[in-house]
Every structure is written in structure tokens, then in C-alpha cells.
Computed example of a mutant assay.
Amino acid sequence: MLQRVQVRVTRLLEIDLMVAHDLPLASYDVLNQLAETAERRLRMNDLADRVLLSRSGLTRLIDRLQREGLVEREACASDARGLYAVLTDAGEARLAEAAPTYLRGIRTRFLDVLEPQELRQCASLLGKLLPAEVC
């Protein structure tokens, strides 16, 4: 049941973002993860872990976002093999446009459906399933 709920909500969020902003949910997630960092950048390996994509899947997505001017790649000064994904100003603007649609989808499909006590219980249960460093 948990998987069906997750798939349903994810599909509906994807539809919302595609219709309103021509932005896939995975792209929104990448832009959001980068925006949440102090320097608007993450090493590609760390970003892949955060967005739950394979390294090759993230590379293809970053290629697409780079072509759209939403992210840039930057070499890592301390590791010649390392690369950063960096959020551009255009990427930040696109995220700001899409965020209300995403948040509205979360609210209408999840938060508004559950009572406050159910939300607290849900948060508590999900917190037991994920280690703190993953959240």
C-alpha cells in the first residue's frame, strides 16, 4: 500500500509540474536540492544520493538541465575527478516559479487529506523508517 500511495502522489505531482511548468519532478527535485545548500552546489555523488537516482541517471538529467541553463558543472578544486552541479540564477528562478505548484500538490494530495493527529503519527512512523541523516 505504501508503494501505491507513493507512486500515485508522485505521478500526480509530475503531471502538475509538467502541465504548469514543463518541468519533470526529478528536475524539480534536483533544483530544490541544490537550492537548499548554502553555495547552491553539491558534488554529483552527493546529489545522486539525495535525489535517489543512479549516477548515470543523474548525469543524463544534469546534461538536460545544463542545456536548459538551469545548472552548470564545476570542477572540484580538491579532487580533479570530482564535479559539482551548481544551480544557476535561471534555475533558481524556474524553481521559484514551480515551487507553489509543487507545494499546492503536496497540500491537496497529502496534508489536507489527513487530520493533524494523523500527520503527527505519520511523521513519527516515517521517521522510524529512515535514519536521521537521510532526512
Results as ranks from 00 to 15, higher is better:
residue 121 Q to V: 13
residue 23 L to S: 03
residue 39 E to M: 13
residue 72 E to V: 03
residue 10 T to H: 09
residue 31 L to E: 10
residue 101 T to Q: 10
residue 43 R to F: 04
residue 27 S to L: 07
residue 59 T to F: 09
residue 57 G to Q: 10
residue 21 H to I: 13
residue 11 R to K: 15
residue 104 R to D: 14
residue 95 L to P: 01
residue 91 G to N: 11
residue 118 E to A: 15
residue 135 C to D: 02
residue 122 C to M: 15
residue 92 E to L: 05
residue 5 V to T: 15
residue 114 L to F: 12
residue 43 R to P: 11
residue 99 A to N: 04
residue 67 R to T: 14
residue 58 L to Y: 06
residue 71 V to M: 06
residue 83 L to S: 07
residue 76 C to Y: 14
residue 94 R to V: 04
residue 31 L to N: 05
residue 80 A to V: 08
residue 118 E to G: 10
residue 62 I to M: 08
residue 87 L to H: 00
residue 2 L to Y: 10
residue 109 R to T: 00
residue 118 E to H: 09
residue 50 R to A: 14
residue 115 E to I: 05
residue 76 C to M: 12
residue 116 P to I: 01
residue 14 E to Q: 11
residue 54 S to L: 14
residue 105 G to I: 11
residue 77 A to D: 10
residue 18 M to D: 01
residue 135 C to P: 01
residue 17 L to N: 05
residue 124 S to P: 00
residue 47 L to F: 07
residue 121 Q to Y: 14
residue 132 A to R: 13
residue 103 L to K: 06
residue 96 A to C: 01
residue 16 D to E: 15
residue 27 S to A: 11
residue 120 R to Q: 12
residue 54 S to A: 13
residue 51 V to R: 03
residue 113 V to Q: 11
residue 76 C to W: 11
residue 100 P to D: 08
residue 84 Y to K: 01
residue 46 D to R: 15
residue 67 R to D: 11
residue 22 D to N: 14
residue 117 Q to A: 13
residue 56 S to M: 12
residue 84 Y to W: 07
residue 21 H to Q: 09
residue 82 G to E: 06
residue 83 L to I: 07
residue 125 L to G: 03
residue 64 R to G: 03
residue 91 G to D: 06
residue 72 E to I: 03
residue 61 L to A: 12
residue 135 C to N: 05
residue 39 E to C: 05
residue 4 R to M: 10
residue 100 P to T: 11
residue 100 P to H: 14
residue 39 E to I: 07
residue 95 L to N: 05
residue 41 R to N: 07
residue 10 T to G: 13
residue 34 L to W: 00
residue 79 D to G: 01
residue 121 Q to L: 13
residue 32 N to P: 00
residue 2 L to S: 12
residue 43 R to A: 07
residue 133 E to M: 11
residue 14 E to Y: 02
